[in-house]
């Protein structure tokens, strides 16, 4: 398998459900390619179709239309048995962890191996190995009800990795966890991606999750993919309204100030912004009004945007914009609120 062959390829996928008033499309014309070894994020509002999409990737949900290729194989072509087999190479974790409550931790991690027909001794050995990897060796014989949410999710991760999958699907895997635990779990996923080379698909409604670990992101809005690209690209220069809504939700509160010129400055990791604005104000001896600022730390670099109100004077305003552009910033004039 060549490296640039996508591990998951989705073509023209639609999924219709029988709703109370006729057919309802939870997904429409989805096209996506997920590369081997990447951490791919899918973000969208509640009800956008994220879970349905991720369930189509392992055919827990059969698409109404379109094709899903996993590792070059068209899933629609597979027999039931072949599909069961291929699911062993697609691990999945969930918001509610979904552990077997009547089995202890070891039993849970052994479960997929039992299903795959692995011998008991081997399964136990592998399970113990995985439990030590997720840092839960001391809970081997505990039951899920005796564990915290974060620990349960670690067990679920160990379980999902038991059969050496190529891909790990995560449906809101951190949404039931507190921020600190979320971070721990995300770091664990990042390590798994780096050390085991497992492709990770992360479904979430939280920007933070995407920023923290994803390489690329798709924004799903009202059953359709609105935008796909690198996290950097999409989060600094969202093109579609849906993406803007997600990336800069606070923008709606910026009021239009009549007669004054506003411009949006985009920081793309080349500079930090405070000195630039401060420097500009000093150089021009003219105040600017910061209407909105939102920066994020992505992969150790500063990204974000700021909306500032320039002085009334046309000439000063356009010179200021030139000044900013000279500093390698993307500057665009916006009317009113953006």
């Amino acid at each position: 398998m060549s490296d640039d062959l996508p591990i998951i390829k989705i073509e023209g996928l639609s999924k219709a459900f029988q709703g109370p008033d006729g057919e309802f499309f939870a997904l429409e014309d989805i096209n996506l390619e997920i590369k081997s070894g990447e951490i791919f994020g899918i973000i969208g509002m509640s009800g956008a179709g994220k879970s349905t999409l991720v369930r189509c990737i392992n055919f827990l949900e059969r698409p109404t239309q379109g094709t899903v290729y996993f590792d070059g194989q068209n899933l629609s072509d597979l027999t039931k048995k072949e599909l069961y087999k291929i699911r062993q190479s697609i691990g999945m974790i969930f918001q509610q962890f979904n552990l077997l409550m009547q089995r202890n931790v070891l039993g849970n991690v052994c479960f997929p191996l039992e299903i795959a027909g692995v011998e008991k001794d081997q399964a136990v050995e592998r399970a113990k190995e995985l439990l030590s990897m997720v840092g839960l060796s001391d809970k081997t014989y505990a039951y899920p009800s005796q564990l915290s949410g974060g620990q349960q999710q670690r067990v679920a991760i160990a379980r999902a990795l038991a059969t050496n999958p190529k891909v790990l699907l995560c449906d809101e895997a951190t949404s039931a966890l507190d921020p600190a635990t979320t971070k721990d779990v995300l770091m664990l996923l990042k390590d798994i991606n780096k050390n085991l080379g497992i492709t990770i698909v992360i479904i979430t409604h939280e920007m933070k999750v995407i920023e923290e670990i994803c390489n690329r992101v798709a924004i799903i809005d009202k059953s359709r993919i609105a935008e796909v690209g690198s996290v950097e690209e999409v989060f600094t220069r969202p093109k579609t309204a849906a993406a803007k809504r997600l990336v800069f939700p606070e923008e709606h509160s910026i009021e239009m100030v009549p007669g004054k010129r506003c411009c949006r400055i985009v920081f793309n990791g080349n500079s930090s912004f405070e000195p630039i604005i401060a420097g500009m104000v000093l150089d021009f001896r003219q105040p600017v009004n910061i209407l909105f600022a939102d920066t994020k730390n992505i992969d150790g670099k500063a990204f974000g945007q700021m909306v500032i109100q320039l002085p009334d004077n046309e000439l000063t305003a356009s010179r200021m914009m030139e000044y900013l552009r000279a500093k390698n910033l993307t500057v665009e004039e916006v009317d009113g609120y953006v």
Partner: peptide, 11 residues
């Protein structure tokens, strides 16, 4: 959810 998890493992 637990049933779904088992299905996702190819049960």
């Amino acid at each position: 959810g637990v049933i779904e998890a088992a299905q996702s493992m190819g049960a």
